[in-house]
Design a protein around this nucleic acid. Sequence first.
DNA 1: TAGATTGTTAATCGATTAACAATC
DNA 2: TAGATTGTTAATCGATTAACAATC
Lengths: 225, 225
Amino acid sequence: MTFQELTSPSGVVHEEDPSAAERLSLGVAARLSRYLQVLTQAKKMGKETISSQELSDYTHVNSTQIRRDLSGFGKFGKRGVGYNVESLVSQIRKILRTAGQHNIALFGAGHLGKAIASSDIFADHGFRVVAIFDVDPSKVGTAVGSQTVRHTSELRQMVEDEDIVVGVLAVPTAAAQDLADELVQAGVKIIFNYSESLLAVPPEVTVHTSSPAVDLLYALYFYLT
Amino acid sequence: MTFQELTSPSGVVHEEDPSAAERLSLGVAARLSRYLQVLTQAKKMGKETISSQELSDYTHVNSTQIRRDLSGFGKFGKRGVGYNVESLVSQIRKILRTAGQHNIALFGAGHLGKAIASSDIFADHGFRVVAIFDVDPSKVGTAVGSQTVRHTSELRQMVEDEDIVVGVLAVPTAAAQDLADELVQAGVKIIFNYSESLLAVPPEVTVHTSSPAVDLLYALYFYLT
DNA sequence: TAGATTGTTAATCGATTAACAATC
DNA sequence: TAGATTGTTAATCGATTAACAATC
């Protein structure tokens, strides 16, 4: 069964624009990503099946909605039992088109950069750190994880040679915009920003700014009220 | 004008449960937190006013919705000009009830812990790291930022003495659940989890699991399609 | 005044949920 | 069979957006 058939329950095929018919809504894509995170970890812990209720407990998404989200793409579950963790992981990866490997470049070899490089949080989801950059001469040439730190001047060449699709900025706020500009010029379309800088980029480039404090504010509001 | 009046445009006052009438919806609280992040940074950069369109560019929230979210609480903007950054920051802080200081405890004095302790991402929003814990004897007693690393066995006492409301876990996956259990026993209601562990906690405790890889998957989906 | 941007309406769209038959 | 959990419907609720008058 093809993806398009699965997402066209009405049987209507939009031949004039098939990509639009296949594209998930923002909400569905975000939720599927969250399910994937929990499932990946559940798999690591040796769990074989999981119910929509358990997924709900971990993601805070209503269990009915989880079943609804999943049933739109096929009958993945078994009544009375739940979902097979391993098979659901590969189904969601297929739906999100992220079954393959994607190469990322990391900027900044400070504490945060080292923490990211040594974590398997990216590796678990098929992201591979293929280059680490810094401008500090005392850091260039040293080893971080399995990589040797390179000078930022090599950015252009590495993006091309290594097919880098994501740039992760773990640098001081003042350095972030210049790096973002260089990444844009090198053709990178996704920037993950751990600095506090507000980045200005062309519309075709996606910036995701990490904001733990914002998440905390949000959690705190519901705690205080 | 009180907050309750502002959130009861119908004029109906729910005297039997005033807290319910005052409570923001999940969506509104999340969006206000994001506006606050951008505004805080804009203020740092010396920006005095900001339009709903500029806020939209940085948050990816529709500008009409931003104006709608804000106008529910008062007329904060000036037509033809925009919003005063500084005054909007304090208005949103008031709405979110997070104008004060909140104390947090950090667990793990590795790369990630050090990165968090030295960042002002929490400090900017009124969160203060008042204690750093680790179990490694070689780390206990050393200085990280302005704090001295303590042994985790002091957790209970410090939570009480320092009025800690949030625990941040920057520890290996295997250590996370035990620490979460201890935090719950000590009465902490908000846990921020940077490990990959799926934490089991009582319903009154909120766990937020950081998931940069999930965010990346999500961004990547829209890049690939 | 002219230009810009807010505040607000009205209409639409998608998310959310309870409920329950189907079935493992 | 008995218990559990999915898949799906139908109804509701809130989010989203375009449009534009008000006004700085």
